[in-house]
Amino acid sequence: MHFYELLVELLLMPILAFVIGLAMVLMMRRIGARIQRRVGPPVLQPIYDIIKLYSKETQISHGLMHEIGIIMAVGGFIAAMTLLPVPGMSGLTDKGGAVTLAYMLMIPSLGMALGVGQCANPNGSIGISRALTAMLAYDIPFILVIFGASYVYGTTNLAEMVAIQQQQDVSSWGIVQMPLLALTALLILPATMGKHPFEIYVAPSEIATGPMVEMSGKFMGGLFVMQCFQLYTAGVIFTTLFLGGGVYWITFLPKIFLVVAIPMSVAYLFPRYRTEDVLRLMWKWPMLLGLIGLAVVMK
């Protein structure tokens, strides 16, 4: 079969994801700057940052697990990227569907958590404890959305979901089929990205950037790379589930950028919530909407 084609796809998908992710990081910073009436960073700023971090001359490590943690964080995302269908490439989407993806995405977080733990800095540990709490907060509505979409499309295979949505025009898109679930997903999107007002686990002024507290040089660089993948993943999942996914890059790219731009534009307007308020918020409105949405689609 097209084994070599598949290999090329598997190689290409993470690279593309990284490049698009870089652009998304730039967009995020630019949006933030514009909202604050600033000019914002130059176009290649995310690349400068990453090159600079990797080229630091002294790289301070707190031990083997610190290093493995960062490797797991980047490597896990590289692997997870092959489960996200993009125009022309479906990679391994038939080998593991949405549920697998959801759990694959926890591997990088686990890696980071272990690496941070090894740093022996309580700020980092508090950050991880908050990050896990936040995950508990947003994952429950998220899994509800995944269930609803899988139920409506009759499959957990993301590539098949795209195919189903492309059968007709916009009316077959997920967002028309299940608007309430789409709204739920949109509400939890900022939390999944860990941006304002849900950046409880970074909280620079409180716990000194939490997990990042002891990260220097290439360790920090790894986290920057991870952030690119994170934004990209959030955009693609939403687009695949609700916006008809990708058939052509020309339509796919605006969609994923739009998806990421929405929470970003809101993010810089709010201060940070407390941890328990994030839980309360996530378990109230998105859950409620999601359950109603589920009841509607399952009736």
Binding site: L53, I71, G75
Partner: peptide, 28 residues
């Protein structure tokens, strides 16, 4: 439909870790 193939998933995860290691050792 929407199945699971752990051989692929785990392999790709291990290769991903491999690339992660490469990226890591790009740094000093």
């Amino acid at each position: 439909k929407g199945g699971l193939d752990m051989i692929w998933i785990v392999s790709v995860l291990l290769v991903g870790f491999g690339f992660g290691t490469l990226v890591f050792f790009l740094g000093g």
